[in-house]
């Protein structure tokens, strides 16, 4: 079974990411599926990153995280955040099949991003379901 998305849906996803996240100051935002496919990626044009490799690693990392949660007796860990000196990565689960990855620097606060995320996830879910 394949995932097939047309222009209308993809444009909608892209708009949502652009408006809510790139607009907020996020550098790269990417919707992937749990198999590691890149569904949509949007950036602020400043820095090109290897998004395919990132997607493969993020999907695996997320899968590993879920398995760890099970072992310690949790359904999931709610905050998936890697903090660097300048750059940070924040993962959010959209639903069972999709994951959103955000790369941002210290101009954006995690709190603000998390607040925004609820709305983004709602918009994405309405397109993807």
């Amino acid at each position: 079974m394949s995932l097939i998305l047309g222009r209308q849906h993809l444009d909608k996803i892209q708009d949502t990411l652009q408006k809510n996240l790139i607009g907020l100051g996020v550098q790269n935002t990417m919707l992937i599926d749990m198999a590691g496919n890149v569904i949509v990626t949007v950036d602020n044009g400043v820095k090109k990153r290897d998004m395919y490799s990132l997607a493969a690693l993020a999907a695996a990392n997320f899968g590993a995280m879920c398995s760890m949660a099970k072992i310690v007796g949790e359904d999931e860990f709610s905050l998936l955040f890697h903090k660097g000196q300048k750059e940070n990565i924040y993962f959010s689960r959209v639903n069972d099949e999709f994951l959103l990855i955000n790369i941002f620097n210290n101009d954006v606060t995690l709190g603000f991003l998390r607040l925004k995320m609820a709305q983004v996830i709602e918009e994405l879910s309405s397109v993807l379901d």
């Binding site: 079974m1 394949s2 995932l3 097939i4 998305l5 047309g6 222009r7 993809l10 444009d11 599926d33 198999a35 496919n37 890149v38 569904i39």
Partner: peptide, 8 residues
């Protein structure tokens, strides 16, 4: 699960 992007 393959992903098919009809737009691009």
């Amino acid at each position: 699960m393959a992903f098919i992007n009809l737009k691009d």
